[in-house]
Nucleic acid binder design. Structure first.
Lengths: 368, 368
DNA sequence: GGACGATTCTGAAACGTTTCAATCCGATGC
DNA sequence: GCATCGGATTGAAACGTTTCAGAATCGTCC
């Protein structure tokens, strides 16, 4: 990202055609506050005031300056403003996978709240890679970003450490953190895993597969742990739950996992996926192989993205309040940013998930 | 969005606690190139060269300066660089709906190509609203963005006009434009519409609904026109094709359209949707109402997003090369940006769509 | 021994804002 | 007629870079 040194070599010896200066800076963009000041016969300070503190300027001057701004097509330079202010008016947002509608929804909620507060948002995709995450954080630092909303891909707390080191306000999204360490908004993954597993156990399943990789991601780990605790609470042995790891959390990984699942014997009667993308991919493989859902294998997803309800077999899923998650995180960040004098108290907010039962896990009679 | 005037009132009378200056600027971020220069006993110019033109600096100095940078945690200020350079190192990207996996895929392709070229990307969502689009373009202008990739929401060419007026390099994405006017990369929507409609007509359907709103959007208009031309080419009357407009192009609009469709009599035997989101929403309604697909109603979507294949009934769809679209647009923009001296020739590229037949439109015997 | 080149470094200008102390001016109060 | 006040405006500093003309140093060649 923004690799330093890509520019210089190519632009070393350019003719640099000086643009004609006869007209007052014709190629818009090049019109500065000085040109406006000159055009209106006032000082630059006054022009600045017209823009930022109109009530300080007499009506007559204000109108005159506004007219010149219009005429010259003046657009103020955000970089100059930033330089002066010492920080930008942007918030960086870093999610694990923008192609996952769950995160798209989270981002949408956050963006809406932040824009309402006059802050721009730069949404970036770490692709669950600590290296890409670090690159983006470096980019944010160069931009003197105002704050960061991040779902960390880095599993050792280096991300949090680095942000705290820089003094950048941040809020963890979809990941919990001790309140002393910083703000966080998450959804109770332990509970979600428990809900989903208990539902399958209730339906009589005694061989359940948990499909979901990267147990270094707390989301996956907690959902699995929740499922395990449901098994234990129901008085079953640990081996009722089989863990099938995947390296990514997308549809393609779900398809692969489906193939592996079909090779298992004895074959599980139910599958619990770490997210809906995996479940949808798995469903494709099962469908293609002629395996019936839920008759042969019951399926439960996680996130309840919009496409879960429209799936080949409408998908039972653990719904997470994605929009609320984003909005809440944004509010927390805004609180920290604006309350600059007041000693901001970090908060740890944990939202609750909800099981949405659909066809893919319709109740069955225990068969084995 | 970055509303001017939100800041000033709240920060008018703040105590502004001057940070301790004993340590060399402890709260990172505040370390400037001057601090590094002082720390290393060189001039600021030399520090700048260490960073940007290392080959110009003696090894000894380079190492010394690098060490100081490390020690002080210096991070260069992008806004200062921008101010000096006159433009940012960012490209703005504006799509109609980021929640639509099709655009997510386009954005991903573009981002990848641009990052490889050392440019950052700011992806924004106009929500198909000309007003929001204009706001974002204004934001881009203030940021002195290097170039813009845009799928215009504004249907009169105002967007293009405004960009050309600013002199900002741009490429239209998923929308065609005469090569004299600027670069564009699109997919042949006329052809796509024809493919889809011909497929349904071949299967014997004689009452086909086209579901898709906002015919002011060329994508929708062309797909509809393509469908109409297929009807004409097959020698049928115009009224074989019924147009059912929707105001948005998302899953919820598809659900609504489904309800309206069910109220029609005679009921169409096939539906062609302007995109997959509509088709998936429609499918949900049909499924809930017990209408069988494709037996009672055949369904064809558009875009072939990943979720189409995993739908309740795997969806026949017109595949568009989303990733390629984004990548190609990025390449065109890069060509225009880098070839600053060379007279850049605008190009109009039209990619071809492809019909992917799945269960939702399985062949049937003509019944009426 | 002086001229010249190459290499390395310096110092200052410039980028376009915002902010703030200082100035100006007309009106008000005495 | 003078001091004072308040509102409107000015002018310059500062923000943190990059760039570039020039200075310093050293070696080489005539």
């Amino acid at each position: 990202m923004i690799t330093p040194g890509t520019g210089p070599p190519t632009m070393a010896s350019m003719p640099r055609s000086t643009p004609k200066r006869d007209e007052p800076a014709r190629s818009a963009g090049r019109v500065g506050i000085k040109d406006v000041a000159r055009g209106a016969g006032v000082s630059v300070g006054t022009v600045s005031n017209v823009i930022n503190n109109p009530e300080m300027v007499s009506e007559e001057t204000r109108l005159r300056v506004r007219a010149v701004i219009e005429r010259l097509g003046y657009v103020r330079s955000e970089s100059a403003r930033q330089l002066r202010a010492g920080h930008s008016r942007m918030v960086g947002m870093l999610v694990l996978d923008l192609a996952n509608p769950f995160f798209a929804e989270v981002a949408k909620g956050a963006e809406h709240a932040l824009r309402a507060a006059g802050l721009g948002v730069m949404v970036c995709n770490s692709a669950a890679s600590p290296a890409e995450e670090a690159e983006y954080l470096a980019l944010f630092a160069e931009q003197r970003i105002r704050g960061v909303l991040v779902t960390p891909a880095d599993t050792g707390g280096r991300t949090v450490e680095s942000l705290r080191g820089q003094g950048t306000p941040f809020v963890l999204v979809d990941r919990s953190l001790a309140a002393e360490e910083g703000c966080s908004v998450s959804v109770d993954d332990l509970r979600g895993g428990t809900l989903a597993a208990a539902h399958l156990l209730d339906a009589g399943h005694r061989r359940v597969a948990f499909v979901g990789g990267r147990t270094d991601l707390p989301q996956v780990r907690d959902r699995l742990a929740g499922a395990r605790s449901a098994v234990a609470a129901a008085g079953f042995a640990d081996d009722v739950l089989l863990h099938l790891a995947t390296d990514r959390l997308d549809v393609a990984a779900g398809r692969d996992a489906g193939a592996r699942l079909l090779g298992l014997s004895p074959r599980p009667t139910a599958v619990l996926c770490a997210n809906d993308l995996l479940a949808l991919g798995l469903l494709q493989t099962l469908y293609a192989a002629g395996v019936r859902v839920p008759e042969d294998i019951a399926l439960v997803g996680y996130d309840d993205i919009e496409f879960a309800a429209a799936a080949a077999v409408p998908l039972t899923s653990v719904r997470q309040p994605a929009g609320l998650l984003g909005r809440t995180a944004a509010d927390l960040l805004l609180d920290e940013i604006t309350a600059e004098g007041v000693p901001h108290a970090h908060r740890r907010i944990v939202l609750q998930p909800e099981l949405v039962v659909r066809d893919s896990s319709a109740a069955r009679v225990p068969s084995s």
